[in-house]
Design a protein around this nucleic acid. Structure first.
Length: 345
DNA sequence: AAATCGGGGGC
DNA sequence: GCCCCAGATTT
């Protein structure tokens, strides 16, 4: 039984985090969505801002999506913010603003999967449902020297089953937080503290001196490369933007007029396409003010090389783009790549 | 079953 | 540069 050791360790070593001082499912849910694939240090300021801006699920539900996305700006995986907003409206509409406590019911909420449903139901209602996050995969893989890849279908089933067998059914909330905290602080990916570990004498990978070999993962496909040519078109002290609506990165965030290429384009090629498709002119009634160097922007599955070309255009009328003042621009939710670019504007 | 979706921090 | 982070959804 690993539960007693974990919970004891947890009581002595846990971090004091704001979402641990409450059992309000709204706040726990908020923290869980924010912390998906995100380090505590990175998510913390966003959690504080969301709680302050939207103290209740009703406040979040009635907010416009653009305001939610703006507050999320810079955190990445923007579908989390869109789904967060959708789920808030679902809770208000379907549950009168009261979060359900059952695992299966929680999973019906947009953006709430196995992990998050288990977290909310166990943390807030002490339901006996095991969480399986990156920490749990790592701790269990090491304790039992499990060779099944954690990102394979079989691995996900195997680890979920094992986790559910191990969870302390009477103290699931404490147990779940304990095993995650243990993974985050002690059984870490690169420098596990095996010598001082409470499972030193039973951890199968540790005993073999192979803790670092676990967990096993299937190598992911390598990333694709994209070239983005953004055009900051200045006309009458305004610029122009559009909203990304395709199912692609940064959906529902805004951007400058953009030309995209799979391979590095030639300057003349870019210029021709700019005139034809964005400026819609055959003459040279515009002026290139400046052009930045390509900036490399690394995403999990894509490498983006982006460049900004500033253009002075006397007349610009293209219905695909919306005239935007600098003040308006800074209020729009933008990919961090663009937000950084306009900081000094 | 595999691909996709961000950004940052640690090494 | 590579890996990983309190994963979920889409294809």
């Amino acid at each position: 039984m690993i539960g007693a050791k974990l919970i004891k360790w947890f009581k002595q070593n846990k971090r004091d985090l704001p979402w641990r001082n409450t059992t309000d499912p709204y706040k726990v849910w908020l923290s869980e969505i924010i912390l998906q694939q995100t380090r505590v240090a990175q998510g913390m300021p966003y959690y504080m801002a969301f709680v302050k801006t939207f103290p209740t699920v009703f406040d979040l539900a009635k907010a416009p999506e653009q305001k939610v996305l703006k507050l999320w700006q810079g955190l990445g995986y923007y579908s989390r913010a869109r789904n967060l907003h959708t789920a808030a409206k679902e809770v208000v509409k379907n549950y009168k603003g009261i979060f359900p406590s059952e695992f299966e019911e929680l999973k019906k909420l947009k953006g709430v999967g196995d992990y998050t449903a288990a977290a909310i139901s166990s943390f807030c209602f002490n339901k006996p449902q095991a969480v399986v996050d990156g920490n749990v995969y790592r701790v269990l893989a090491r304790l039992f020297a499990i060779d099944t890849p954690i990102n394979s279908t079989e691995g996900k089933k195997q680890f979920a089953l094992l986790a559910q067998e191990l969870v302390d059914k009477k103290n699931a909330g404490a147990y779940n937080q304990a095993i995650m905290e243990f993974g985050a602080l002690y059984c870490t990916p690169h420098k596990p503290n095996c010598e001082a570990c409470v499972f030193y004498d039973t951890c199968l990978s540790g005993l073999a001196g192979k803790a670092l070999n676990y967990p096993i993962k299937i190598a992911s496909k390598k990333v694709t490369t994209r070239y983005f040519e953004y055009f900051v078109i200045i006309s009458n002290k305004n610029t122009y933007t559009q909203k990304r609506t395709e199912s692609d990165i940064w959906k529902n965030l805004h951007q400058f007029p953009l030309l995209e290429y799979a391979e590095k384009p030639t300057d003349t090629g870019v210029l021709e396409q700019l005139k034809k498709e964005i400026l819609k002119t055959k003459t040279n009634n515009f002026e290139i003010i400046k052009q930045t160097a390509y900036k490399k922007h690394q995403l999990s599955h894509q490498t983006i090389y982006a460049r900004f070309t500033y253009i002075n255009a006397k007349k610009f009328t293209n219905p695909n783009y919306k005239q935007t003042s600098l003040k308006q621009l800074k209020k729009l939710p933008l990919p961090i790549l663009l937000a950084n670019e306009i900081v000094d504007l």
